[in-house]
Write a protein that binds this DNA or RNA. Sequence first.
RNA 1: UGGGGCGUAGCCAAGCGGUAAGGCAGCGGACUUUGGAUCCGCCAUGCGUAGGUUCGAAUCCUACCGCCCCAGCCA
Length: 566
Amino acid sequence: METTSPPSSERSDFIREIIAADLREGRHESVVTRFPPEPNGYLHIGHAKSICLNFGIAEEFGGRCHLRFDDTNPIKEEQEYIDSIEADVRWLGFDWGEHLYFASDYFEQLYEWAVHLIEAGKAYVDDLSADEIRQHRGTLTEPGRESPWRDRTIEENLDLFARMRAGEFPDGSRVLRAKIDMASPNINFRDPVMYRILHATHPRTGDAWRIYPSYDFAHGQSDAIEHITHSICTLEFQDHRPLYDWFIENLPVPSRPRQYEFARLNLTHTVLSKRVLLRLVNEGHVRGWDDPRMPTLSGLRRRGFPAEGIRDFAAMIGVAKADSVVEVEMLYHAVRDVLNRTALRRFAVLKPLKVVIENYPEGEAEEIEVINNPEDSSAGTRQVPFTRELWIERDDFMEDPPKKFFRLAPGREVRLRSAYFITCNEVVKDADGEIVELRCTYDPETRGGSAPDGRRPKATLHWLSIAHAVPAEVRFYDHLFENAHPGSDGRDIFDDLNPDSETVLHHCFVEPALSDAPPGETLQFERLGYFCSDADSTADAPVFNRTLTLRDTWAKLQAQGKQNSA
RNA sequence: UGGGGCGUAGCCAAGCGGUAAGGCAGCGGACUUUGGAUCCGCCAUGCGUAGGUUCGAAUCCUACCGCCCCAGCCA
């Protein structure tokens, strides 16, 4: 099968250029990157961009990429998140081999390095409260003031820091700070906090520690310990780079990593803020982290998005330093592109309308051979039962059709895909005038879907034998957020939630082969879209999620009101 | 009125002094047993603005404008 994935050899961006130059000019012999999630939530499509970047670079340059959890804040972190993150990175298609690490693995080393800084007179224990520290920090335009505890003796600092570790002091009573420059225009240099006291149980170290290092004091050193060559992070850390370098330069670390920053992903109709995603889950706006409307990897997976589509998307959007908002349509395109090539075609009727073929013998049934994927002949064919009474899609019939409606109408002949041509002779209605049944005739000469005389109907419909159809529930998904830029112009982000992001249809039908469709495989319901079996399916009640619709030019014409124009 | 970044089409993004890639979206058309897919064509005399340097500027210089990030004991 042909693959249309973007050629990675041609892909380049400013980070890959830097790495290529570093290798070419001998600054490094090989490249080592890392993906460093904090286990305080589930991974989302924005993380996928970073994962594809870091693991992709390692693959392309023959290096390696570590998975390292940045687990320095036990208050927010949980084992559940660690497990889900590992599963999601694997699902996306990447492998860290033996290189699974945790910042918490380095707590002892980090502690020693903190002592090293104290001994060098470059760190001190501060007794100021969080509030007082904030007041001393100054503002963006005014320098800060030095803490009265800034000039304690090394001995006193050493003693206090050891007692902080021993758990002698309550949370918030003291911190260890780097002694740098309270007047620096870079606020990160105004004596940043290195350690805080937290009497919290850590998912990995349990109650071994009562003090925990801050991000700034842990990240760069963790990179150095692992011999990371290129530490790639998002733009908001640019201001931290001088501090990252300061710790590296003032500590006896085993290697000299460099930090590079790129713009994080933003998507229209989507929110990628961990804080908001957590609220969506906790406040019940969705059913969980893996709700098919969520931009989490687990949500996208449940929705039926293949990992390959997400990887292709990441390659498509590129990597740069300008803030940007990518239109979700680009993601949809990447996903459809993969699904079109790979998804097996099946028949399903979402809004059924009964068709009786008057000249087809009662009680007879035949097997119709149907192609599984016209894009992939190796996918083969399957048999679908055909009988006198069929379901077709309600939307495929109009009693009084506009000019551009090509489907079934009174007196009109259409093709039933892979089966026969049928002509509608009569419309049967109930007492309310509702169409309940179509009386049609078929042309036995057209078996397989083509006529000996070469006539060709303008439309081809999907269909299901009523006697064989399997009832199913189908869930339709739309943007979780109505507005392209949720929360923009000062609106509350939650006011932008789309009340119709999920709609459920209960009386749908699918072909017999789908009665036990395995979850995890996305199918195409011909002419309708891509769907996948949901985890909520049971033996007698299959449930399908609509992954995406097919491109639908008829729907577009209707929306534009052009269906009647010549 | 500090510091750090960024401005190329509706969106993403190449471009690295030699005359504006590519993709998404959109629009036209061909083909079609999915109104799908595929194929073909169109879509920036212009690169935030104004000056300057140069034979030549999106690329270099100057000034200005706009947007983003930083005042957690979050990451």
